[in-house]
Design a protein around this nucleic acid. Structure first.
Length: 505
RNA sequence: GAUCUGUUCGUCUAACGGUUAAGGACACAAGAUUUUCAUUCUUGAAACAAGAGUUCGAUUCUCUUACAGAUUACCA
């Protein structure tokens, strides 16, 4: 048996992939790649009632966009399939039965109504949520309280039942978490979790352990919310495959929203995306915008997520995926949760846009412009435009706001910025300038020199003329330096815009 | 309620138990640059949750308290 590092991410296809999910993928991926190992994606679809059509495919698209592609998965294939838990149903039953045989689990015949009654009857002020544990399991209907014959009779009759783990009454279960160090629990406070549901599907508890074993997972990383059920998994490893074969665990800190936990639900409420990519709920048709659609570069998205809970101890903040793989270490992951800061996220994106070459930006920006209805984009123009405005764009979508006027003459003008100080002298200046442009040499410097010389001749301050000029070309008070715009626009278009604006006033 | 996990500037975080006025980044404020807007640059304000203990020495180790979060389903 090899010691190869194998890690897995196991999402349930129940909706969009949120920040915490992507970061878990990322840390799994980085760890695997750093150690030359494999990153496995398996799908936890054992709860049919929560399954959302399209969610599985969506997850794959997210991984593709972020560049965190798995080595093995339902779509990539692999030697340890099937990678969908619903397709491995039979395997789980076999292990559950073995646990019963070894006395570590038992059949339970309690109906949902009976369970509800139990929770109601045993509820006290000290214990508002009674559990199915050693204190009450002998009061319920299961193979521990029923005789062997009775149990067999119920089983033979096909009575609906589940298999529950039988937790030891007083035992300390401890394990070493790669991030938190030694963590221990007393089994008396953990309940007899259901392992196999009445429909024959396993619960997460059984499935992770069995799958991790069968898929030879060496390191298991998941969110901190799983910490309380870790003792169940440890015990299962002990009973089934031997504690010495158990993967090494790491429970990742949570990502928090502005006021507490970051929930999938109210994605729209925060004012920033929570999903990697836009997700439309097929039931409600509700669209939740994702980081990609919001205008984030995948490199920036990964970078900011990596730093939300980890850093390499230096002051470096911008990391490429390759650098992250090289420098990442689970030991330097924090144990405390981190609040997500959208402003900082945007800063990361801005940094990445500045660092990304025009060539690499061209495709994304081009398709964004087309999506927004810009037509007739020439590649050479687009290149120059991107180079000119890239520094001023924080999100990819800013490229539209900063550049649409290059491709289409403005239809609305900020007249308030011009009118109050407008007079015939200025009008005459622009008439003259437009005429002069016809013979002019076409570059930024010449354009600016002519502009200033002419202004001096006409005895007007150039500063008072630049704003109107900008409004003529752009429509508003924004954009790169005005002579750069004119240069890119070209002689014909510039003159055209001047004239059509003059006819407006 | 119980169990587990946490707690350094507003936020993300750095600091072999001993060079630190506790460092950096985002955000914020002021100024410079830009005769638009943004960028950029400079400067500034801003934190070790509280108490006890261990130690020659504690932000760092231990305990207690406070606060926060997770879990407490035939969901993952």
């Amino acid at each position: 048996m090899s010691n190869k590092v194998r890690v897995r991410f196991a999402p349930s296809p129940t909706g969009g992939l949120h920040l915490g999910g992507v970061r878990t993928v990322l840390y799994n991926y980085l760890f695997a790649k750093k150690h030359g190992g494999d990153f496995i994606l398996r799908i936890e679809d054992t709860d049919q009632s929560r399954y959302v059509p399209g969610a599985e495919e969506y997850i794959f698209n997210c991984l593709k966009w972020t560049g965190l592609e798995p080595d093995e998965s339902p779509v990539h294939g692999g030697n340890y399939g099937p990678y969908r838990q619903s397709e491995r149903k039979e395997t789980y039953r076999q292990y559950a039965e073995q646990l019963v045989k070894d006395g570590h689990a038992y059949y339970a015949f309690d109906t949902p109504e009976e369970l509800e009654k139990m929770r109601h009857d045993f509820k006290t002020e000290q214990n508002p949520s009674p559990q199915y544990d050693h204190t009450i399991r002998m009061k319920m209907r299961n193979s521990l309280t029923l005789s062997k014959d009775e149990t067999q009779k119920l089983l033979d009759a096909g009575t609906k039942h589940v298999i529950r783990i039988k937790l030891p009454e007083h035992e300390t279960v401890s394990f070493t978490d790669m991030i938190r160090g030694e963590v221990s629990f007393d089994t008396s406070v953990v309940d007899d979790k259901v392992l196999l549901k009445a429909d024959g599907m396993p619960t997460y508890h059984l499935a992770v352990v069995v799958d991790d074993h069968l898929m030879k997972i060496s390191h298991a990383f998941r969110g901190e919310e799983w910490l309380p059920s870790a003792p169940v998994h440890i015990l299962l490893w002990k009973y089934l495959f031997g504690i010495e074969n158990m993967p090494q665990w790491a429970h990742l800190p949570l990502i928090l929203g502005p006021n507490g936990k970051l929930s999938k639900r109210d994605g729209a409420k925060y004012g920033f995306p929570v999903f990697a990519m836009s997700w439309t709920d097929p039931k409600t048709n509700e669209l939740t915008e994702g980081f990609r659609e919001k205008g984030f570069l995948p490199e920036a998205f990964i970078n900011l997520l990596a730093l939300l809970g980890w850093n390499d101890g230096t002051e470096q903040e911008i990391f490429s995926k390759e650098e992250l793989i090289e420098k990442f270490s689970m030991e330097r992951v924090h144990s405390g949760g981190a609040k997500f800061d959208y402003e900082k996220a945007k800063w990361f994106n801005h940094e990445w846009i500045k660092r990304t070459s025009v060539d690499n930006l061209q495709l994304a920006v081009g398709s964004l412009l087309i999506e927004r209805g810009v037509t007739g984009i020439e590649n050479t123009t687009l290149e120059k435009v991107i180079a000119l405005i890239k520094e001023r764009c924080t999100l990819l979508t800013d490229f539209y706001d900063q550049s649409h006027f290059f491709f289409k003459a403005p239809e609305q003008f900020d007249l308030d910025a011009v009118k109050p100080k407008w007079n015939d002298d200025k009008k005459n200046f622009f008439l003259a300038y437009a005429g002069k442009l016809n013979q002019a040499e076409w570059n930024t410097i010449a354009l600016e020199n002519d502009f200033k010389t002419l202004a001096t001749e006409k005895n007007i301050k150039p500063g008072e003329l630049q704003l109107p000029f900008r409004i003529m070309l752009v429509g508003g008070k924004f954009g790169p330096p005005v002579f750069n715009i004119a240069e890119l626009l070209g002689k014909e278009e510039t003159i055209k815009r001047i004239n059509s604006f003059l006819s407006l006033l």
